[in-house]
């Protein structure tokens, strides 16, 4: 799906772009004209408080929600309003908020469903081996039913499952949710590893400090609007941002 040449030619072009995207939930205006760009090969994080529109942004990308106006471009192609399975086939997969693992299925079956749209059996086997390398715990638990895993293991499985689609853009929705600090740290290390092996990552997080540590670029959402953005190193130094989002006085 993502051959080396297309990666090279796409270097100048953002892998994902929002152009003035509006999303409504009935009468609620959840995204108010959001424009953003995700550069190929980077980790980009979307931070902000509860209800800022972070998850809505992800859903508008993955096709679970249709924008009421504006455009979503993936590799320069409009994907707004397309069916989710088409979008996954294009190379965008996600680990949904709250992990969304299939609790009554085995870990192996969960991974299998991650590669649901793929037919290349050998390559799927390679990717499975890659997931095992990243998450040895997932391999240990392969024949266990996924509902019996710990929270951290479930999150690892959710990310591993999303990687089984061999995405060029990986969407992560609050991977730190409800996890112990050491486990969060390990998961974030793995996110960096995934990114280094060539996958662009869009990371939605409430834990802004941690997210900005590993991200190249950060955007701050507030009540449906982008209120600040920049390279995360700079943004995390800005006093206003530190005060408003990183909990400093």
């Amino acid at each position: 799906m993502n051959s080396g040449t297309s990666n090279l030619s796409a270097l100048s072009q953002p892998i994902l772009e929002f152009r003035n995207v509006n999303v409504h939930y009935g009468a609620i205006h959840a995204l108010k004209g959001v424009s953003l760009k995700v550069e190929t090969g980077k980790i980009v994080t979307l931070v902000g408080a509860n209800g800022a529109g972070k998850s809505t942004t992800l859903r508008a990308i993955s096709g679970l929600l249709k924008p009421s106006s504006g455009d979503v471009l993936f590799r320069g192609q409009s994907i707004a309003g397309q069916r989710t399975d088409r979008i996954v086939a294009l190379g965008i997969s996600q680990a949904p908020e709250g992990r969304g693992i299939f609790a009554n299925m085995t870990v192996a079956e969960n991974l299998e469903l991650g590669a649901y749209l793929r037919k290349d059996k050998e390559e799927i086997e390679n990717d499975r081996a890659h997931v095992f390398e990243l998450f040895p715990r997932v391999k240990e638990r392969l024949w266990q039913s996924a509902g019996t895993l710990s929270g951290g293991e479930q999150q690892m499985l959710a990310i591993g499952r999303a990687l089984m689609a061999r995405p060029s853009l990986l969407l992560l929705d609050e991977p730190s949710l409800g996890l112990a600090p050491q486990i969060i740290e390990r998961i974030f290390e793995i996110i960096v590893k995934v990114n280094r092996s060539g996958t662009t990552v869009l990371l939605v997080e409430q834990n802004a400090l941690l997210a900005m540590e590993i991200a190249h670029y950060a955007l701050v959402l507030e009540t449906g609007k982008v209120v600040a953005e920049g390279p995360s190193v700079e943004l995390s130094r800005s006093p206003e941002i530190r005060k408003a989002y990183l909990g400093e006085d």
């Binding site: 069916r83 989710t84 399975d85 969304g100 299939f102 009554n104 299925m105 469903l113 649901y116 749209l117």
Partner: peptide, 16 residues
């Protein structure tokens, strides 16, 4: 089975 287990997640995996 995926639809039964978690519809949103199933859809996110590309299951129609």
């Amino acid at each position: 089975l995926a639809v039964r287990e978690d519809e949103i997640a199933a859809e996110a995996m590309g299951v129609n």
